[in-house]
């Protein structure tokens, strides 16, 4: 399941809902991304997340479907916030559940790597010295590419 929302989420509640009534799950992995108070050494006082309504949901659904095709997941969840946030607040939650830990760990990392490069979100940071749009990082592209390199190696 995927959700894009302004309001905060409760990690415990989200996981409880995902596993409710299920006894086939043996492993649950969660990743939470939060707002940091510094960027490249400069203080950050707030962050605003813009997105492309419609395409964002389509991309998140596509990424989630791809993870479910690659790994035997019993459940998965992506929640991403938009709007203005302050340091310490939650930005994104990814939860994966499977029979044993391998699939859940790998799928959670895959979901985050693909989300970082494919989902149409943009961060703008503000601080006492001004602010600006966050630049995309080459390391995120590299993190995504290693999944397709693994496919080639497996062929």
């Amino acid at each position: 399941m995927i959700r894009v929302q302004q309001q905060d989420f409760d990690i415990g509640e989200e996981i409880d809902r995902l596993r409710a009534g299920r006894t086939d799950i043996g492993a649950i992995v969660s990743f939470t991304g939060t707002v940091r108070d510094t960027a490249k050494g400069a203080p950050v006082t707030s962050m605003t997340l813009e997105h492309y309504p419609g395409m964002t949901e389509k991309e998140l659904e596509r990424i989630e479907a791809e993870a479910n095709a690659r790994w035997p997941l019993h459940a998965s969840l992506i929640v991403h916030r938009t709007g203005r946030m302050t340091p310490g607040e939650n930005i994104v939650l990814v939860v994966t559940a499977s029979a044993s830990r391998g699939a859940a760990f790998e799928a959670a990392e895959f979901l985050m790597d693909y989300l970082k490069t494919d989902a149409p979100f943009w961060k703008k940071e503000e601080g006492p010295d001004g602010g600006g749009w966050v630049d995309a990082r080459d390391s995120d592209d590299a993190a995504r590419k290693r999944w397709s390199a693994q496919d080639k190696a497996a062929e």
Binding site: V92, K116, P120, F121, K123
Partner: peptide, 29 residues
């Protein structure tokens, strides 16, 4: 660029696309 909400490269043909979006590299997560 996205044509009808799908990522494309700059050499993509617009063809019958109804919605064309332009944006910087994404920075979510």
């Amino acid at each position: 660029t996205a044509l009808d909400q799908t990522h494309v490269s700059h050499d993509a043909k617009i063809a019958q696309a109804r919605e064309i979006a332009f944006f910087p590299p994404v920075t979510g997560g």
